[in-house]
């Protein structure tokens, strides 16, 4: 009984051992293709569709994946290994399968303005030697840059041209000219970049010019207005000033069908403001009123005069007499009499 059990145990242990061994050895009909550098294994064996159907799909796939991974890991451990801080690492060889790049290759840099022009004219670059002979220093020096050969900025004396202003500082003039050339070059560089990226060149309107056109002046004004600490937020505009063009600001309108009551309220508010801005005393109106009153008085006077005149005519005497009578009339209460006369006519 005991012996039997011992044998059984031994057999069991052997079996287990075999299982373990089997677990790291996988048999395949065709060898797998390995690309250890990419940690890649390709299984070219046919998949038995019957197995796939009979077994549970998940189990089948899992066991297949496990076997292939085992093979890949076996392959990895065939590579030379070394110990790095308690961990055994394998050194992978170079990958044999080239992988395609993720992004498309970069486009060639678009040609600069000069390159375009040079191509058009057929101008080709000529390579100059880097070193040139410096006569004064008696040595070979670089053509450009620091410690260059034949450096004219190191001159201790400068000739004043006959046509130039004798008080002009020729050294300062040269430095200024150089700075302007550098600035221009930088500006051209930025323009090239801007053109390549198809964006507007900022601040084109402010290049120094001998004579600015109307548009350029306008642009200069708009740039100057926004060149305050608050980016021109508090700059007042002139009464009839036009809006600056190309500022990048888009027009924005209210929605077509929005808040009608709000719109009405705004318009009423605007009307109120417009109304309050009207002068209380309209001068032309006041003058007109005055003129009308004058007219009326004159007309009234003429009316009275006319009546008197008729009387005068009847009597056959000149108007002087009527005038005398006129003085007496108001006292006599004539207006009332006139009215009476008028009324019957109307009826």
């Amino acid at each position: 009984m005991a012996a039997c059990s011992v044998e059984e145990l031994l057999a069991k242990a052997e079996q287990e051992e075999a299982e373990k061994l089997k677990s790291i050895t996988v048999l395949k009909e065709l060898e797998l293709d390995f690309d250890i550098g990419n940690l890649l294994a390709c299984d070219k064996n046919r998949i038995e569709s019957r197995d796939f159907r009979e077994q549970k799909k998940e189990d089948f796939l899992r066991s297949l994946a496990r076997d292939n991974t085992q093979l890949l890991i076996n392959e990895i451990w065939k590579q030379p290994t070394e110990r790095v801080e308690e961990a055994i690492v394998a050194k992978l060889p170079e990958p044999t399968i080239p992988l395609p790049r993720e992004k498309p290759p970069p486009k060639p840099r678009p040609p600069t303005r000069w390159e375009q022009f040079a191509k058009l004219k057929g101008i080709q670059k000529k390579k100059k030697t880097n070193l040139v002979w410096d006569e004064t220093a008696k040595e070979w020096r670089r053509r450009w840059g620091y410690k260059r050969a034949n450096d004219n900025t190191k001159d201790w004396m400068a000739e004043v041209p006959e046509t130039a202003d004798p008080n002009e500082d020729q050294f300062a003039k040269r430095i200024k000219a150089k700075k302007e050339r550098v600035a221009k070059n930088e500006f051209n560089r930025l323009k090239n970049i801007a053109r390549a990226q198809k964006v507007k060149v900022p601040g084109v309107g402010l290049t120094p010019k001998t004579k600015q056109s109307k548009d350029e002046l306008g642009r200069a004004v708009s740039v100057a207005k926004t060149s305050t600490a608050s980016m021109g937020r508090f700059q007042d505009s002139l009464p009839k000033e036009k809006r600056a063009k190309n500022t990048g600001k888009k027009r924005k309108f209210e929605p077509l069908i929005g808040d009608f009551s709000n719109e009405r309220q705004k318009q009423l508010e605007l009307l109120k403001v417009m109304d309050s801005k009207k002068p209380k005393l309209d001068i032309t109106k006041a003058v007109n009123k005055q003129m009308r009153e004058d007219d009326r008085e004159e007309a009234a006077a003429r009316h009275k005069k006319g009546k008197k005149g008729r009387q005068g005519n009847m009597s056959g005497k000149p108007r002087g007499k009527g005038g005398k009578g006129k003085g007496g009339r108001p006292a006599g209460g004539r207006p009332g009499g006139g009215k009476k006369k008028g009324k019957p006519g109307k009826h």
Partner: peptide, 11 residues
């Protein structure tokens, strides 16, 4: 079609 701006309304 759009609503008038403030300036247009004023005019």
């Amino acid at each position: 079609m759009r609503p008038l701006t403030e300036e247009e309304t004023k005019t």
